[in-house]
Amino acid sequence: MVGQELMRAGNLHKTYRKNAVCTPVLLGVDFEVNQGEFLSIVGPSGCGKSTLIHLLGTLDKPDQGEVYFRNQRIDNLPSSQRDHLRNREFGFIFQFYHLLPELTTLENVLMPLMIRHSTLGWLTARWRAIKKAKDLLGKVGLGHRMNHLPKELSGGELQRTAIARALIGDPALLFADEPTGNLDESTGNGIFDTLRGLNQIDGVTIIMVTHNLDIASTTHRTIRLAAGQVESAEPAPARVHPWVFDPRNEGPLRQTGG
């Protein structure tokens, strides 16, 4: 079920500058996402999809415009509060997985919680965190790969590890930047099914950048970016019919109710 507004961005501008060369990327993007919504952002390469994700996820600051999360402006927060938001409220899934190569699958998944807790706090929260990480890894089908290093995993396994890592902190909002872009179609579909399941079963709000229009078409809503602006967008639905996701056979998906 889609609920109240979770995030809103207004008139976002971003220009990259190198020496005297300015490259405008976003030229006034307006945007909102509701609680429980699965939103996809599509558009040609270089249109500013990833930049938009970075601005929304407080990884970067807009030159102009505002970003609100739960009706609180977040783009101008001090660095420590933005770190706090990224650690507790947001989860990130990247196209190239971005796992830490020295750490095992389990350690990678635990990393957000390790960052969250002090050394002393970690000692008390450790066993609960490990149990949760193991559960999550089991849920994404990696229960048997917990002590493997990233170099020992396949692309799909790497991305599922990244998904488990993004979920361990119970984020309110998941940013997925082309999560299937580096995978073959079958594996990509598997990853997308996992995300869809998270949205439908666990109610995780997801903003996903993708080039795959077929996948985008099955999300609640799609925003098309072109030349730094929103070219077309469906209005945020007042209510979305829930997807029913059967993790036992991972599809086919079916829409119920109406």
Partner: peptide, 10 residues
């Protein structure tokens, strides 16, 4: 960059 994205402070 990954650590910062996961919320690690400077």
């Amino acid at each position: 960059g990954i650590l910062k994205a996961l919320g690690a402070s400077n």
